[in-house]
Design a protein around this nucleic acid. Structure first.
Lengths: 139, 139
DNA sequence: CTGTGTGCAAACTCTTTGCATAAGT
DNA sequence: ACTTATGCAAAGAGTTTGCACACAG
């Protein structure tokens, strides 16, 4: 039934310690309805508008940051001025298509990195990011 | 003798098709005097000022972009709002120290990535970036 | 001289913040 | 009711651009 989806979303928010407000529910639904996604604030804002959900840009920013702190999202370190958010929080890597500014997941388990160097004294590894930058093949 | 360094810098600029102006010479000297470096525009601007070289911020931006096009520099894809430039153009990877916003080279040849996935149809790999994010170890 | 490069200030983009209003529990 | 979230508009960072002046060849 239709209620199931929003019930799940609400549970997810509560678990994260966030009150399930209209806006959070709406944004979370958009984010998690279609599987793993990579988007910018701007994109999500437009998507929300298109879906008839009238949230301010500032609220999208705030909300995505709250989601990130709650580990419902990850921030992607792709070069460029915009911040990409990734709905897939698990350990995985990315293709980045230059010229198109598009982020694509690299199928899990495909990459292994060997000979990882020791971190310097007193440091520990927080995360390893691999970004494979692609361009369209010249023909 | 003192002239050697600037002669080399001038040659480097000419080879890149850039006229060796005062500002370019000065910035290039700062960049390449101390081995491989990672810096932001702001940092280089301050360094120049400290060295008594009075360049405008806009010129630093313009110059670093020109150097990048000339492949004398590389832009680093570290998350965050600032752009890092790397004077080491060869193929290598980086540590990024969170909280300190510091970039450190990973000694060459230490990392190997296996099982690199096939790029999608019609795409080719432009570059592979590995960023190992470090944090200070809790004690 | 002639064409490029530079400096400045203003414009721009993306993002964050302060504060009054609105909504959740 | 009481607390937390939202919206708006304004501020803030980092970066880019347009145009007059200055310098390199």
């Amino acid at each position: 039934m239709a209620g199931d989806q929003s019930t799940k979303t609400e549970a997810r928010l509560r678990q994260a310690g966030l009150r399930p407000t209209r806006q959070r529910m709406a944004l979370a639904s958009l984010l998690y309805a279609k599987g793993d996604r990579h988007l910018t604030v701007e994109e999500l804002h437009e998507e929300a508008a298109a879906a008839g959900i009238d949230v301010s840009l500032a609220t999208v920013y705030n909300t995505l940051h709250q989601f990130t702190e709650a580990r419902m999202l990850r921030v992607l370190a792709v070069e460029g001025s915009r911040t990409y958010f990734d709905t897939n929080v698990s350990d995985h890597h990315h293709f980045f298509i230059e010229g198109r500014n598009e982020v694509v997941d690299i199928p899990m388990g495909n990459i292994s990195i060997t000979n990882l160097p020791e971190p310097p004294e007193g440091m520990e590894v927080a995360h390893v990011d691999v970004i494979i930058r692609l361009r369209e093949k010249a023909k």
